[in-house]
Simulated assay, not measured.
Amino acid sequence: MVDAERPRKRDRIKTYVTVPLSVRTSDLPRRAGSAVVMLAISGTALWLGGIVWTLFVAAVAIGVYFEWSVLVLLFREKGTRRNLWRVFGAIYCAIGAAVLIALRDSQAGIFSVLMLLGAVIGTDVFAYFSGRTFGGPKIAPRISPSKTWAGLIGGAFGASLVMWLLIVTMGEGNRVYIDWTVGGVLALLAAGSATAIVAQAGDFFESWMKRRAGVKDSGRLLPGHGGLFDRVDGLLSVSIAIGAVFMISRVIGAS
């Protein structure tokens, strides 16, 4: 017998609760502490350069590939498909590492690596705060429920801001200057936006892999951040994109 006083499912009113910003950012102290340690280690390796930077990048790439392999083992694919995923992961990590090593050895050296790292970090930080502050529509809730359009816009602004700060402080010594015309400002914003989009794409790709594997994080090495892959997913995708642009430009220039 149906209770007439009980509201039907379609007539029930959904209640939405606004989560305070302090709760949404409760993991910030732990994330910040881990970030400081990571920046200190990577910054020292970058400053020393040479074999130290090469070994550091190689160690991170190997760690990321290990986490990649663990995720693949949790996929449903077996046999050849699983091996193809492993091969693709090795190529993916190797290209990203090679680009980072090549940038440090280039004429711009530290400046070029800082531009890349700074833009990706600016994307992550500003996307984190703007996404949690403003919320709003999700980009791809089935893949990564926490990523919003507000976060992506904030990330694009953050990448552009960090790139501008680096050019202002270090650009003159590396023959890089800000063109304050409308075209120059738009070019800077376009570079920041492209970095944010590619970095977020790398983040989504890793999130998609984790969903297929049925895990929340790629590892537990970094408190508040998860694993190495969780931390450098955006950096890897941007590095690979830079490598692709460089190769295409070389081919076009040679033709």
Results as ranks from 00 to 15, higher is better:
A241D: 01
A102D: 09
W47D: 04
T148G: 05
S193E: 00
F56N: 03
L189H: 03
S130I: 10
V232H: 06
K210W: 11
A140G: 10
E172L: 10
V232E: 08
R132Y: 13
R8S: 11
G136T: 05
W68N: 09
G49F: 09
T133L: 15
T15C: 00
L228V: 04
F157K: 00
V198G: 03
A32W: 14
P20T: 13
G243M: 10
L152M: 13
V125L: 14
L84T: 12
K14S: 13
A199E: 03
R82L: 13
E67R: 03
V52G: 00
V185H: 07
F88P: 03
G136L: 02
A97F: 00
G136I: 01
L55N: 07
L189G: 03
R231W: 08
L103K: 05
T195G: 05
F66T: 11
G109Y: 01
P29C: 13
F229G: 02
L114W: 05
V215H: 11
G184Y: 01
V19F: 13
V87T: 14
T18E: 15
V87P: 06
I62M: 06
E77R: 10
N83V: 14
R220S: 14
F88E: 03
I143C: 04
D124E: 01
I143R: 10
N83M: 13
L236A: 12
S69V: 10
G131C: 13
D105M: 12
I101N: 01
L186T: 02
L28E: 10
A241W: 02
A150Q: 00
A194I: 14
V113P: 03
M1C: 11
R30P: 01
P223Q: 09
S26M: 15
V113H: 03
L116K: 05
F75H: 15
P223T: 11
R250C: 12
V72Y: 11
T181N: 09
V168C: 05
G184T: 08
L21S: 14
V251D: 06
G171H: 09
G224V: 13
F129N: 03
L28G: 08
G151D: 01
A127W: 00
R12W: 10
Q200G: 09
G192N: 05
G227S: 12
F134C: 06
F246R: 03
F126T: 07
F56E: 09
V168R: 12
L84N: 02
V2K: 13
K147W: 09
I252S: 07
L116T: 07
L116A: 01
R212V: 10
G96K: 01
R104Y: 07
L186F: 14
A58N: 09
D3R: 06
G214R: 14
A98E: 12
G96I: 04
E206S: 13
M115I: 06
I167V: 12
A127H: 01
G227A: 10
E206W: 10
I101Q: 00
V185I: 15
L221T: 06
L165G: 05
